[in-house]
């Protein structure tokens, strides 16, 4: 396999991992953010801290514990093996699970803040008009917090693309399965292949910049539209 085609394979693996991770994050992160926003208990602080852990913890710490959990000799690893017939550690599923945990705060925090700001007023009004909880979420909450969903999706995706430590610990370096861009880049540097390292680095830098600019552009547009509507 040429260097270039190996890098393209790593790019595809990365995008696949980030996309699957982001979808899973939105599915579990939205209800999690909702409960954290609505929960009126002091115990809530503890769960907020757990969600925020990946922000401060070295990714290798998370990766180390996950590696232990995913090994065929530990209970989660065994359950996975009996359920799917394949080993969890060093698989695509492993890096997706790792990424979900690692990028959790980037999705949960903006959503939680948005849900807290939204308050209960509009939801109570909707309930009095006959809308049930799921209906209220899609007809009121989602349209009013759309900007935060865009931010959460983009941050979750971008952060997953850029991850290194967790994947290195639990994914290994299997082309087409767990070899992602950040690891490919590390390999190039280790082999003193700076030309390819430059290509990947610049590529990741520009792609991330473009993605983040788009997010802020969308957010600004949406906010200024709302401000204009409120002031008119």
């Amino acid at each position: 396999m040429t260097e270039a085609s190996a890098d393209i394979l790593a790019l595809i693996t990365t995008l696949k991992m980030a996309a699957v991770t982001t979808i899973i994050l939105l599915i579990i992160g939205t209800p999690l953010a909702w409960y954290l926003a609505k929960w009126q208990s002091k115990k809530k602080v503890f769960f907020e801290a757990i969600v925020a852990l990946p922000l401060v913890l070295p990714p290798t710490v998370l990766g180390f514990y996950l590696l232990l959990a995913f090994s065929p000799t530990s209970l989660p690893g065994q359950i996975w093996q009996t359920a799917t017939g394949s080993q969890l550690a060093f698989s695509f599923s492993a890096i997706v699970i790792g990424s979900v945990l690692y990028s959790l705060p980037f999705v949960v925090q903006p959503l939680q803040k948005a849900f807290e700001q939204l308050g209960d007023q509009q939801l109570e009004a909707a309930a009095m008009l006959g809308a049930g909880p799921i209906d209220r979420f899609f007809s009121i909450v989602f349209p009013l917090t759309k900007a935060s969903f865009i931010t959460a999706t983009a941050l979750g995706f971008a952060h997953t693309v850029g991850e290194f430590g967790v994947v290195l610990m639990i994914g290994g370096n299997i082309p087409g399965e767990t070899r992602v861009l950040s690891i490919a880049l590390f390999d190039h540097v280790e082999a003193f292949n700076y030309a390819n390292a430059h290509l990947l680095s610049a590529g990741l830098l520009i792609a991330s910049l473009v993605l983040l600019s788009l997010v802020y552009l969308l957010g600004n547009n949406y906010n200024s539209k709302r401000v204009k509507a409120i002031n008119s």
Binding site: Q121, Q122, E124, A127, M128, L129, G130, A131, G132
Partner: peptide, 15 residues
């Protein structure tokens, strides 16, 4: 539940 009561409520702050 409120949504099943067939009772309307007009709030002071419109909502």
């Amino acid at each position: 539940k409120p949504e099943k009561r067939q009772i309307g409520l007009v709030f002071q702050d419109s909502r």
